[in-house]
Design a protein around this nucleic acid. Structure first.
Lengths: 352, 352
DNA sequence: CTGAAAGCGCTAACAA
DNA sequence: TTGTTAGCGCTTTCAG
């Protein structure tokens, strides 16, 4: 059995690799159609340079054989795959849904295939993903990348990269306006008479986490509020209890969480412990994710334009892959998207 | 400038395609190391058949040059990419998060790269995705596929396919035990004195939706309940108002929604209209997604082992891709995973 | 243990 | 307009 498998181009490899059926190749189509492979190739990717009736014929034969060009081979030749990868830290975090949706829409418009990779909140895994996928895609959108700047620089030498909610020297990026957003949050709290708040920090590597804290800190100083930072916490509801309990050791009247998922976990814990929100403690999140509007009480949170961010990032990436595009450089644009505070029932006047 | 670009293997293509930098190839490594390309190849993928010190040397040179094998080229030769695709109808639906997580874990264990595709609730888009990615991956896990059986059969001739929450003749699949699950739901309602309920159906093409209704219908007959089906509704919270309003035209004392997201939308609408849950109306969902435990009131729902489903599916796919695997056939296994009713506050005694 | 050479499926000169 | 030919980067016989 195995002995037969030597170099018989077609019959072979079947018993070994259970590839369902051998796909038709450009060669088989060319033979069946009685033309050269290059004609078949042109029929598909260069319609202008082939006789109309020849083309029809080739296409008909191809259809009959169920042929469609092998993207792997096309990619090997051209170096382009028309595929871009979107990498997110944790695909189960609903925050990234919007980014994914926007990226998909933009990819479809640019006739690009989008694949999504999950970095699993792990810089090492993220870097490996980029290495692994590097030659198989035309570029990456790295969302809230946890990779250190050096790693990003290294990766950007081999790959086209666009960042979302992360900035790094020389790299194109799309970020939310955290400066304004954190200002809105602090103004909201100040207007309600709060004098101090606790910030529940997210992962240490999180660039946006750092921006959030920096913004809150600055705005707090401006408004004469006292701001304290706790954490880091893994941004999941599971971190809620520890975070909430930590807050309750202080006399802060408000708490701002790294993101909504963490805030919701905090809310759950506070309910468990009989702390009334917002009467005793105001809670504010970031992201306005699915769930923020129906948790109890509904969460005040800073909404970002995540869909737009995903779309803009893919568009920028598509532009980078087009011939004649300027590679990254000093002038790498940072696009800032507005943010908006959505006030719901989880925040209110400070207790007197 | 462009004139220079003729066939100079290296200098070319730079001005045209702004690929950040030319990646090192097996040839450049071979030259730099003073060995043949085949030796480099073996150093990487056949460590046994190369002298230990030669191998070290090659690896060192490769490292210095930043070389890593081009998966596209490897794939072209071997037909294997060590990449599998997971396709979901809508990645923003939190239900699929568990499947993704499980698939990721299993893929990592099998040393496979996982890419995720979003079919956007569209059978046509789903089929196109399979076509597009077909040659670039070793196989597919199609989750809750909306493709008709014929399309699946066709696709399975060219690709290795494993289904999750969908069955189709001859295809391997992993499904939740809806028969038991729907029985649990109906028993729960019956034990609380409900005499009739409405089922809010999901997309018409949804296989699991059909199973859910079939199970509910059968169990209702068994318990002497009256079951009515409404819909189809798009399974998003946005469909909640229409669905809830429809239910309120009936005298049903309970409503079972196609999934949690829809159920949450219903809950929101009921609150808006002043209908008390569960005093006036019990609400039950499917999936136990993120949010089901903190919506108001917390949702009674049928929990599936989504993580396990994702993992099992990828394992099955990995097994299919291993040499010697039996291609699909009559005996294609259908693996049934248990389901469990999670009773929360959204369901209770029928109003008297 | 290592090298030479063929070829995976496709595209892009170049000729005809 | 079409065919011929030479690779893209890699793996894999087959010799040495």
């Amino acid at each position: 059995m195995a002995i037969v498998c030597q170099k018989l181009p077609d019959a072979c490899q079947h018993g070994l690799v259970p590839a369902p059926r051998r796909r038709a190749t450009i060669t088989s189509v060319a033979e069946a159609a009685g033309v050269a492979t290059s004609t078949v190739s042109r029929a598909f990717s260069n319609p202008g340079r082939v006789n109309h009736v020849t083309r029809e014929h080739v296409l008909a034969v191809a259809e009959r054989l169920g042929y469609s060009p092998n993207p792997t081979a096309q990619a090997l030749e051209s170096g382009r795959t028309n595929t871009v990868a979107l990498v997110v830290p944790d695909i189960t975090n609903p925050y990234f849904s919007g980014v994914v949706k926007g990226a998909e829409r933009a990819a479809a418009e640019a006739r690009l295939t989008l694949v999504i990779g999950d970095a699993q909140e792990n810089p090492v895994h993220e870097e490996r993903l980029v290495r692994r996928l590097g030659a198989a895609v035309d570029g990456f959108v790295l969302t809230a990348s946890r990779m250190p700047d050096e790693a990003l620089q290294r990766a950007s030498e081999l790959n086209r990269i666009v960042l979302v909610n992360r900035a790094s020297p020389g790299l194109t990026s799309v970020v939310a306006d955290f400066a304004s957003g954190t200002g809105q949050i602090v103004a909201h709290l100040a207007s309600h008479g709060h004098r101090s708040f606790v910030f529940l920090g997210g992962p240490a590597e999180s660039w946006s986490g750092a921006r959030r804290w920096a913004g809150l800190h600055a705005a707090a100083a401006e408004h004469g509020l006292e701001a304290t930072r706790f954490g880091p916490y893994t941004p999941t509801t599971a971190s809620g209890p520890a975070a909430a309990d930590a807050v309750l050791t202080t006399r802060a009247t408000a708490v701002v969480a790294h993101n909504d998922v963490l805030a919701i976990g905090v809310l759950q814990r506070l309910a468990e412990r009989g702390v009334r929100v917002p009467e005793q403690l105001s809670v504010v999140g970031f992201d306005d994710v699915f769930g923020a509007d129906f948790c109890h009480p509904p969460l005040t949170t800073l909404a970002e334009r995540t869909t737009e961010a995903g779309a803009r990032a893919v568009e920028a990436l598509a532009a980078l892959t087009r011939p004649g595009a300027t590679p990254t450089g000093e002038d790498a644009p940072v696009r800032v998207l507005p943010t908006q505070l959505v006030v719901r029932a989880s925040s209110g006047p400070a207790p007197t």
